[in-house]
């Protein structure tokens, strides 16, 4: 899950490190302005919750289990800024105290697993909520879809870093296709679990769901049955959509179709493993070695991520200024 040292080159490690440190610094400044002392124990203990939730086994298929990444869920529960901070701290502690993830890989691990999925996932959450009804079910559905997309964003981000920082000339399309394909599947699990968790918090303490603060009591009480199965189906649809978009780019010719076929074959045969442990599928296919296509693909993915993270940050700033010190009023 957490990339080790030496996986990407030094330049990429440093560049992602600078971006991560800068973002975390800005996030700290923003939270300390508004939420003050109370946030520290609260953020710490919810970080403990995210940590515990990440190592908790969830059933996936035929008795195999998977884990939560939890960044989008954290952003929806705590707000994007605090959510990103909390997951960043989880990742840093995992690297330093549990030897999970390389020390020199912290820059891209934090960027891919905390910052991008938290801000990007929160932006998707807000956008999807505009389409869905203003109700508890709408929040739950949006949480699921945002969690799915956040995992795909993380995979895209890694692929783009690979384009710049690979230590080996493996074709970008191969990496991108396999990463995004696998993570669309992993994302379904993430979506279902995150939606259910957000749903159960909404039922008990709706005031604790940052992403539902704009709803009043009667809207919160409205739980028209969007069931687990519906969320799962929606997840599959989004995954199919993403897979189609991606394959449009990746499948440059007849051999591209072959690639998709064999890709899926491999992903299926390794599914249990991929879902339980690894960030990577095995990329045992010949990629489409087409440089301009690679760049186009990377460009589109990069734009998507940047837009989403930008929107997430925008929402983070607006949420705060719109609802001054909600937490303090509750104490």
């Amino acid at each position: 899950m957490h990339a080790p040292d030496g996986f990407l080159n030094a330049g990429t490690a440093i560049a992602t490190g600078v971006v991560s440190v800068g973002t975390v610094g800005a996030a700290l400044r923003q939270t300390s302005n508004h939420l003050k002392d109370r946030q520290v124990p609260l953020a710490g203990i919810t970080a403990a919750f995210i940590f515990a939730a990440q190592m908790f086994n969830f059933p996936v298929a035929a008795g195999t289990t998977g884990h939560l990444l939890g960044a989008a869920m954290a952003a929806i529960l705590l707000g994007p800024t605090v959510g990103a901070l909390v997951v960043t701290i989880v990742i840093v502690v995992q690297a330093l105290a549990f030897a999970d993830g390389g020390l020199t890989a912290l820059g891209y691990n934090v960027l891919n697993m905390a910052i991008i999925p938290a801000f990007g996932g929160y932006a998707v959450f807000r956008l999807v909520r505009r389409v869905l009804p203003r109700s508890a079910s709408g929040v739950i559905g949006a949480a699921g879809i945002a969690s799915l997309v956040s995992v795909v964003f993380a995979a895209m981000a890694f692929s783009i870093e690979w384009l710049f920082g690979a230590t080996v000339p493996v074709p970008f399309d191969t990496v991108f296709g396999a990463m995004v394909g696998t993570h669309s599947l992993i994302g379904i699990g993430e979506a279902v679990i995150a939606a259910l968790v957000v749903g159960s918090v909404l039922a008990a303490r709706p005031d604790l769901v940052h992403g539902a603060q704009d709803l009043d009591r009667s809207e919160l009480a409205n739980r028209e049955p969007i069931k687990v199965r519906v969320v799962a189906i929606a997840g599959v649809l989004v995954a199919l959509f993403l897979a189609t978009v991606v394959s449009q780019f990746a499948a440059g010719g007849p051999d591209g179709l072959e690639k998709v076929a064999s890709d899926t074959g491999i992903i299926e045969s390794e599914q249990d493993h991929a879902l339980s442990n690894s960030l990577f599928a095995q990329y045992a296919t010949e990629g489409v070695d087409n440089e301009s296509l690679s760049l186009a693909l990377a460009g589109v993915a990069g734009t998507l991520i940047t837009l989403a993270v930008g929107f997430g940050a925008f929402y983070a700033v607006r949420d705060r200024s719109g609802q001054p010190n909600q937490d303090a009023a509750r104490s």
Partner: peptide
């Protein structure tokens, strides 16, 4: 054994989040 049976366990996670938050307070 399957993802769609995960509801109780996810509800437990949600309850744990609420408890964690209240402990924070």
């Amino acid at each position: 054994r399957w993802l769609w049976q995960a509801k109780p366990i996810a509800a437990a996670a949600g309850a744990t989040f609420v408890r964690s938050y209240e402990r924070g307070e």
